[in-house]
Nucleic acid binder design. Structure first.
Length: 413
RNA sequence: GUGAAUGUAGCUCAGUUGGCAGAGCACCAGGUUGUGGCCCUGGGGGCCGAGGGUUCAAGCCCCUUCAUUCACCCCA
């Protein structure tokens, strides 16, 4: 085995799979376009500090999952692990963020995280991302959530659950954190799993998300974020829920829903599926007021989401390949007859008339060529054998009906 | 980073107590003198992931290593 293999966690998408991605991109463009969002393409590579500042130094993503290296100019650069930081950086850099006016962008493409691959998780994976920058209104949160729902529905994906939560703001979240830590410290620490004993100090919110049964039982009595929200956050979340209700979206409030990126505040949401393995999140997002300013821009709020394309692809019905109009089989195998050149020119003429098809470069019997045409599922098989070629003709066989006729090649000019 | 499972034909996988390397699909040819799909017959294809060890004999047992997958963790 000396053939070079792809890098662990990276994947090749052949047409059978890439068709799903093409379709998702088309549906995203159509759907997001109806909400006034425009496509923004940003670089895959950014300065490391963008993610360190934006996502948070203490997060797993920044702490141990980034593809970071020093380039030839001695700058520390990183392959983007998520899209929001880059989109905001671009918008700030272009001066496109004005207070009082919302900017709407979507983007999609590969993201990179150095994690152990498993079902639904790759090191290079793809996300579709949307950001609404500049509005603090609950209506903006809800518009983004409804747009996500619209998109998923348009893809024909059902059986998803929407979960919503509010994580509070810079004012009330620290108080909630310390209340959580005190709660866990008052417990018999032995009852928590090893990870949670560590997390209760580093990031107590994560304990809420633990799947170990013993921890779940203890978490049941833990303080709930909704009881610790400041009046502003409480009113804000109530307004969001009221609007979501009026829009008729089915969802549940999950007070234990936490996000792994530090920039989220107030409204957060996640869309999950039970049908794609243990990595259940297909989309997630929320509000990130303060992030634009943190990245050196004006004090503008924002809200957005990301969808995992590989995970959505698992839930989508696979699009069929487009049927070709013709397969041009060359069965004149006489040395130097010129049939192949004639076939190429004929195929070229057919394509210039808008037909799609393949020209045959493989050798083989009439039987094998026709069998090949049958497997390709083409409408018509054009046969160029010695007999036809000498007569300046081609046989056209209808593969569905089975009938055939001979035509002059010159008639295609 | 941790744990478990799996690496045999182009693909999906069998392979018994260690004893000649197998099937299905795909490919090629014939049955049908130039005609696909269904059927029948035949054919080409393999360093059994790699390296070492035990044995008269290893795809199978032992050790090492690489790769893949699933799960933990984390997230989309």
């Amino acid at each position: 085995m000396s053939a070079i293999q792809k890098i662990k966690g990276f994947s090749d998408l052949f047409p059978e799979d890439s068709r799903s991605f093409t379709r998702m991109e088309a549906v995203a463009r159509a759907t997001f376009g109806r909400y006034g969002f425009g496509e923004l393409r940003t670089p895959l590579l950014e300065r490391t500090e963008l993610f360190a500042k934006g996502i948070g130094e203490d997060t797993d993503v920044v702490g141990k999952e980034m593809y970071t290296f020093t380039d030839r100019g001695e700058r520390s650069v990183t392959l983007r692990p998520e899209a929001t930081a880059g989109v905001l950086r671009a918008a700030i850099e272009a001066g496109g963020i004005e207070t009082g006016r919302a900017a709407r962008y979507y983007t999609f493409g590969p993201m990179f995280r150095y994690e152990r691959p498993q079902k639904g998780r790759l090191r290079q994976f793809h996300q579709i991302n949307a950001e609404l920058i500049g509005s603090p209104e609950p209506a903006a949160d809800v518009e983004v959530i409804l747009m996500l729902q619209d998109f998923l529905t348009s893809l024909g994906i059902a059986d998803l659950s929407f979960e919503l939560n509010s994580l509070g703001c810079r004012e009330c979240r620290p108080a909630y954190r310390s209340a959580l830590t005190s709660y866990f410290e008052a417990l018999d620490a032995e009852k928590l799993c090893e990870d949670c004993r560590r997390r209760m100090h580093t990031n107590p919110l994560r304990v809420l998300d633990c799947k170990v049964p013993a921890c779940k039982a203890l978490v049941a009595g833990a303080p709930v974020i909704s009881d610790h929200l400041c009046p502003g956050c409480r009113d804000n979340f109530a307004a969001v829920l009221a609007l979501v209700d009026r829009a008729g979206l089915k969802y549940s409030v999950n007070p234990r829903l936490v996000r792994g990126l530090d920039y989220y505040q107030r409204t957060t949401f996640e869309v999950t599926s039970g049908a794609i393995g243990s990595q259940t999140a297909v989309a997630g997002g929320g509000r990130y007021d303060g992030l634009v300013q943190l990245l050196g821009g004006p004090d503008a709020p924002g809200v957005g989401f990301a969808c995992g394309m590989e995970r959505l692809a698992m839930l989508m019905q696979k699009p069929e390949a487009a049927q070709l109009d013709f397969f041009l089989a060359v069965t004149d195998t006489r040395e130097g007859s010129g049939a192949l050149a004639a076939a190429l020119l004929l195929a070229h003429k057919l394509r210039s008339r808008g037909l799609s098809g393949e020209c045959d470069y493989a050798a083989g019997s009439m039987k094998s060529r026709l069998r090949h045409a049958g497997r390709l599922n083409v409408r018509k098989c054009y046969i160029l054998g010695a007999e036809e070629f000498d007569a300046g003709q081609v046989t056209v066989k209808d593969m569905e009906e089975g009938d055939q006729l001979r035509l002059d090649i010159a008639a295609f000019d």
